[in-house]
Amino acid sequence: MAEKLKFSLVSPERELFAKEVDEVIVPGTEGEFGVFAQHAPVMSTLLPGVLVVKESGTESRIFVHGGFADVTPDCLTVLAEQAIPVEEMKGDVLAAQKDAAAADLKAAQTTDERLMAERAVAVLASF
């Protein structure tokens, strides 16, 4: 296998993830993109969506909402305002997220805000 990518996922409250992985698929504002080691440096804002972490054959999926991805050739840093593993997205947590997304959609004023909120609602509906 090729070089590993140093991946860290941090939310304001804690560091959720910090290890070496094979590939990460990031839901960027201008489309999803996969990041391997030796990726060209990119800085992108995130859309609400699912971040997929691939690591020696296993995949973990994490729901992220709001934030940035900072890509340099040897590491990827995702600063997410909210990050919840998909396995935990059920019952109360999911309901709370759905409510928050619906409220965001109602409160949205600009086109960008509405697009973001619509996307969050759509992603959440798929769980």
Binding site: G28, P41, M43, F68
Partner: peptide
């Protein structure tokens, strides 16, 4: 940060990112 000669690509653009 060591970006090995590469230049940062910004998505969308620098200002939009800075604004958020």
């Amino acid at each position: 940060p060591d970006i090995s000669g590469g230049v940062y690509d910004y998505e969308p653009d620098e200002e939009a990112i800075l604004n958020t």
